[in-house]
């Protein structure tokens, strides 16, 4: 066989996962379209009065830099430098968790001020879109903890761990790209 098992199967999986990300992208695209169509709404709360720049900026700083810290882990994977992998994934997890905290805080605060999901279609589409993104981050956090457990237990072949880690990296970067689009399409037009 001209290709090693792990190499060939990894390439299959990578292609499959990219296709899956395409599916996710289509879903997000539809939700972005929905947001654009319904915002601003003719009645009820306006985006300008709802959004608050501070949380958005803070959240962005943490999530976007978590993509950078993940690169550290990636470079660690190449030559299997354990400390790099651990720091990379650890800090990424931490930043991701802080982002989640900020998101929960943001949603909680809005809802508290009466900006609930049913208030109007602008808020409806906002919550669905940003909420779906947040649940992706949450899912990513769970995924990362599982990866860390596996790394700690050292129970699977190294090639498989690297493969799983790489797939996770694609996911996390994708979620980050969606966040960039959220900043550009959802928040910025109404914050400046």
């Amino acid at each position: 066989m001209s290709q090693s098992t792990s190499e060939a199967l990894f390439k299959d999986k990578r292609l499959g996962f990219f296709l899956y990300l395409g599916v996710e992208a289509t879903m997000f695209a539809t939700l972005f379209a929905t947001y654009i169509i319904y915002t601003p709404a003719p009645e009820g709360p306006a985006p300008e009065s709802v959004y608050e720049a501070r949380t958005v900026i803070l959240a962005s700083i943490f999530l976007l830099s978590s993509s950078g810290t993940l690169l550290v882990a990636e470079s660690g994977l190449k030559d299997w430098t354990l400390w790099k992998i651990w720091t990379g994934i650890g800090i990424t997890f931490l930043f991701g968790a802080i982002f989640m905290g900020l998101e929960v805080h943001e949603f909680y605060k809005y809802a508290h001020e009466g900006y609930t999901i049913g208030a109007n279609n602008f808020l409806g589409s906002f919550y669905v879109l940003v909420g779906l993104h947040a649940s992706h981050v949450l899912f990513g956090l769970c995924w990362m903890s599982l990866l860390m457990v596996q790394l700690k237990k050292n129970a699977i072949p190294r090639a498989l761990f690297i493969e799983k880690h790489k797939i996770f990296n694609y996911y996390w970067h994708f979620v980050d790209v969606i966040w960039v689009l959220i900043i550009i399409i959802v928040y910025t037009p109404f914050l400046i």
């Binding site: 090693s4 098992t5 190294r158 498989l160």
Partner: peptide, 9 residues
């Protein structure tokens, strides 16, 4: 894949 990869290793 664990099995298969281990064999390869």
């Amino acid at each position: 894949r664990i099995e298969a990869y281990r064999k390869e290793e």
